[in-house]
């Protein structure tokens, strides 16, 4: 589904990603872990089309299409979804008009007719239940006055509504208490299917107790320095990132 080849990217002339290779197939869950500043969020930014990140080398293919040639909205319509680490508050844009506009754009791209108001509201209620989201929240402006946990639930709620092929969860666990974490993780698990793929970006192993990955990659200094099965996450939890850093730095020296 997703193939990243030798990806180099920089921000303001500073190289952040230094040759990433990664392949994600349908049905798989990949976790990308790593210490702060290793380039995790930059990778998510490149995948979703942040314009302040310059891709200097490499390729990204999504379902056989060149992702780097697409605008952010085209990527979304093709089926890429980012659950934001810090969802932005947008006072004055109602949740309903936002979601309806987004859903209908995506449906149009898939050759489907726009949903009627009635069908849309029905669908919204159904998806709300998945993340146990308070119905009152959808009557507000986008993320306005939402608590940290509500914002993260809202991200997964949008994911449920827009039905992406590839979901990227950027630090979705940050700021969540254990109950909220369980609800959010349950939502993600219910949405997962053999046709879909998920990339979980996280600093801690905690979230991976609930969303069990098929592969764990460790990103350090802009490169994937280690890839293994889910047991790697536990090892990292136990030993921290220091041993890996040492290992990598020794090799480089």
């Amino acid at each position: 589904m997703l193939v990243i080849k030798n990806l180099h990217a920089s921000i303001d002339g500073k190289e952040i990603l230094k040759g990433i290779n990664l392949e994600v197939k349908a049905g798989e869950i990949h976790a990308i872990m790593g210490p702060n500043g290793s380039g995790k969020s930059t990778l998510a930014g490149v995948l979703t089309g942040r314009d302040y990140i310059d891709v200097t080398e490499g390729e990204i293919w999504f379902e056989g299409k060149n992702l780097l040639e697409m605008d952010p909205e085209e990527r979304a319509r093709e089926g890429i979804f980012l659950s934001f680490q810090y969802p932005v508050e947008i006072p004055g844009v109602s949740m309903i008009s936002f979601l309806r506009t987004a859903l209908n754009e995506i449906r149009k791209h898939r050759g489907l007719p726009p949903l009627s108001s009635g069908d849309f509201l029905k669908l919204m209620r159904e998806k709300q239940q998945l993340v146990e989201m308070d119905a009152k929240l959808t009557g507000r402006s986008v993320n306005e006055g939402f608590s940290g946990g509500e914002k993260k639930r809202n991200e997964i709620f949008q994911m449920a509504l827009l039905e992406p092929k590839l979901s990227i969860l950027d630090e979705t666990d940050s700021g969540l208490d254990i109950d909220a974490l369980r609800i959010v993780a349950n939502g993600v698990n219910k949405l997962h299917s053999p046709q879909k793929a998920t990339i979980v970006i996280t600093h801690y192993q905690r979230l991976l107790e609930y969303i069990v990955p098929d592969y764990v990659h460790v990103l350090y200094d802009g490169k994937i320095v280690k890839s293994a099965g889910k047991e790697l996450a536990l090892e990292l939890e136990e030993k921290g990132y220091e041993w890996l850093k040492k290992e990598v730095d020794t090799v480089i020296e």
């Binding site: 909205e73 004055g92 844009v93 987004a102 754009e105």
Partner: peptide, 21 residues
């Protein structure tokens, strides 16, 4: 960026944000 990352065109996103303003 948030609106566009949900599939909304740049033009429509600009409009929604202007209206919100």
């Amino acid at each position: 960026f948030y609106l566009r990352s949900r599939g909304i065109s740049a033009q429509e996103a600009q409009f929604l944000l202007t209206f919100a303003f």
